[in-house]
Every structure is written in structure tokens, then in C-alpha cells.
Nucleic acid binder design. Structure first.
Lengths: 211, 211
DNA sequence: ACTTTGAATGTATGTATGTTCAGATTGTGA
DNA sequence: TCACAATCTGAACATACATACATTCAAAGT
């Protein structure tokens, strides 16, 4: 039973089980935040959702606050990872990269109820708990620089007059952020494809020849 | 001492004092949310910030949760009030209204650290506490309809091709929302006038002849 | 087979928190 | 001036909560 094919390489059964529980705790904590809000995400709630024992959090994360921090980092990492793949792809033209970044931002992998709710939860305490900032900011730390470059490329290619790469980037980022907000507040009525059309509509109005 | 000139009409000293304390509680609760986050906005924290007694919350709002709800409603009301003044002004042309709505949204009266943090706090729990939705949604309930009308007016006036009032409105609202998010996350570096330029830049790209 | 190691559990403990309420204080109307 | 009623207070209470830790259980090593 040393190799069931389920666990990652280099992990024996015990380590595998432990890492699975860790992962399960992260998911359950996120679910708790989603379901009960930040305030209601108590150890008891996480325990109930996970089905794991009370002491598990202490074992894996020492404190509940550490667990929450890990949830934020986990979310942030998976976002950055996917986003970087698009940005660093050498085969894609600038306009296509921009389009894909927009589409990625609107894809259910990230723009889904639970994750967005969790993003908003951590953001809501970004002042009172500065530790959260690091994870939250990773969303736009390097993203902005890359997008400015992309926009500048489009501006050069299209010979757009009065265009400003920085303003366009900030506008587009705000647009995407605002779309997340709209989704968060109105998930029931939210129309994903319409949101995409809206974003591309703005992109087209900025770069008519490219979209 | 029945008329110090400070209190509203029709209120005697006792009523005046009571309503002042109520107001003070609302402010202190908002301050507590801002300083300590939603989770840290405990009665003890509110008590310390307000300097009022512990039992005061019970007297004015019965429960702490009611107080929080009142904070949300208060915020929402003052936003709607100001916004409606612009929207209903019969003397302003459509483009000017749109510009003023944008400027109002970015003015320190609303786009300030404390209030934005409090908005985000309530939004973060919009799923787990459906009561909050009502207050939070008032921000965009009727706003959207008015803006669609304004955009349609501009489109008709400017004979813009391929223009869509609804998409433009959703884009602009998302843009403003996203700008709030940017402010919330990066208040230190946030440049208000640059944000305004960004928003007007997008507006101009949508309606070149009007901005 | 035996020992050792580490994961997992759940009760115990003390602090933090929201609410209640009996009493103190103060403005109001008679 | 006095009695009443309303505002206001803060200690008392019960509950909720996170953490600590002694114990159990299972896998790994020898």
C-alpha cells in the first residue's frame, strides 16, 4: 500500500494523509468564511464543515489566525500562478494576452461565489490586520506593470491618438475589480458572458483596431 | 438652556442629548469597524471609542447587530441623498450629470478611508447576513437606471456608432466600483485627481465628443 | 514482534463577548 | 419645588470562543 497512485511523490501514507487534511482544512475554512462570514468562521464552524477534530487546526496551523492567513495565501497563489502563465507566454500577441487576462479574471475558476466572498472578507480587514495585505496585493502587484506594457504595445501598434497606457491599464484593472464587486453583490443575476462583453466593449473603445 | 442653537428644532434638551448619543454611537461603531475590522468591532471597542457606557447600545439599538445594521443604513442613506441631488437636477445637461456623478463618487465625502472600509466590511458578509444587502444595494439600485438614461442621451446626441447605453453604464459603474477597491487597498498611494482622470479618460473613450 | 514516532482526538480551561437589569442621575411638567 | 419619567450607567450573568494538553491510535522503523 506504499503507492496507491493517489498521493504525491515522496510522501508516505502518513505524510499524505496529513497534507490531505491540511488541504481539507483550508477548503473548509474558506467555506466557513463564505457561509458564515468572517465573524462566523469560528473553529466550531470549521470543525463542522470539515468533519475533522477540534485540535486539528492547532496541529497544522498552530492558531486559527494562521489558518485564515494560509487561506488568503492559498487563494492568492493560485490566482497568480494562472495569471502568470498567460502573461509570460511568448507566443501570444499583446492584444490576445489582454483578452485572455480579462477572460481569466472572469472565469469561474476565480470568479466564483466562494472565492470572491473570501477575497472580500480578507480585504475588509486589510487595515486592521496588515498581515493580509501581502496576500491581497499579490493580485495586482506585478499585474499592473505587465498590463501597462501590453497597453503600450497596442498603442504603438494602433497609432492611437491621445492614448495613455497607464490610464488605460488603471481603467481596465478598475473595470475588472468592479466586475468582481458586481458579481459578489449580485451573483444571482450576474451574467458572465454579458460581463465579458462589457469589459471587451471598454477594451474596444480604448483600442478600436484590436478588439 | 432650552435653546443653545445646537440642537434640531422640536427637540428638548433630553431628546437632543439622546439623539446626539445615538449619532455618536453610529460614528463610533463605524470607527471601530474601520480600526479593528468587523471581527474586532466588539462592544468593548465601541465603548472605548465612544466613551459612552456599555448599556447605551442596548438603549438605542437593543442589540449590537442592530447597531451595525443602522451603521450600514446610515452610510447608504447619506450616499443616496447626495447622489439623487445630482441626478434629479433639471438644469444640468446629461454629460455634466455624468461627470458630476463620477466626481461625487470620488469625493472625500464618500471615498474616504473609514467609510470605504465600512462599506467593504458589510459587503464581505452580504451572503451570511442577508439583512445587509438592502443597505448595500441602495448604492446602485436606481443609480443604474438613471445612468443608462444619461448614456442613451449622450449616444443620441453624439451619434456614436456601435454604442450601447447599457454596456457603457455597466462599464462605468464597474469602473467606479473598481476605483473604490483600489482606494481601499492602496489608500496611501492613491491619487484622487489621477483616479478622476482615469475615469474621465474612459468616459471620453466612450463618448469622445462629450468629454 | 517490539519500540518509537507522529498524527489525531476531544475534554478542560480561562478569557472575551453580548445582553440584561437594578439602580443612579437628570431633565420635564405640574 | 417636587414627583415622575426618561436617560444613562456599569456590574452581573451566561454563553461562545480559542487554545492547551493529556490521551489514543496508527504507521514506520528496527
Amino acid at each position: 500500500m506504499s503507492d496507491t497512485g493517489q498521493h504525491e511523490e515522496g510522501l508516505n501514507a502518513r505524510e499524505f494523509s496529513k497534507s490531505k487534511n491540511r488541504r481539507h482544512l483550508l477548503d473548509s475554512a474558506a467555506e466557513a468564511i463564505f457561509k458564515h462570514g468572517f465573524r462566523g468562521a469560528t473553529i466550531a464552524a470549521i470543525q463542522e464543515i470539515s468533519g475533522l477534530s477540534r485540535g486539528m487546526i492547532n496541529l497544522h496551523f498552530k492558531t486559527k489566525e494562521n489558518l485564515l492567513l494560509a487561506v488568503a495565501e492559498d487563494l492568492s497563489n493560485s490566482y497568480s500562478e494562472r495569471w502568470n502563465k498567460v502573461a509570460l507566454d511568448p507566443d501570444l500577441p499583446a492584444a490576445e494576452k489582454l483578452r485572455r487576462i480579462i477572460q481569466l479574471d472572469l472565469s469561474p475558476d476565480f470568479l466564483n461565489r466562494r472565492d470572491v466572498a473570501v477575497w472580500f472578507a480578507f480585504r475588509s480587514e486589510v487595515y486592521s490586520n496588515p498581515e493580509y495585505r501581502k496576500s491581497i496585493d499579490s493580485r495586482d502587484a506585478s499585474l499592473r506593470d505587465v498590463m501597462i506594457e501590453l497597453c503600450q504595445t497596442l498603442i504603438d501598434e494602433g497609432n492611437y491618438l491621445d492614448a495613455d497606457a497607464e490610464l488605460a491599464t488603471d481603467g481596465l484593472i478598475a473595470l475588472l475589480e468592479g466586475t468582481w464587486t458586481d458579481f459578489h453583490l449580485h451573483a444571482e443575476e450576474f451574467d458572465r458572458s454579458k460581463a465579458e462583453r462589457t469589459c471587451l466593449y471598454i477594451a474596444k473603445s480604448l483600442f478600436p483596431d484590436h478588439f
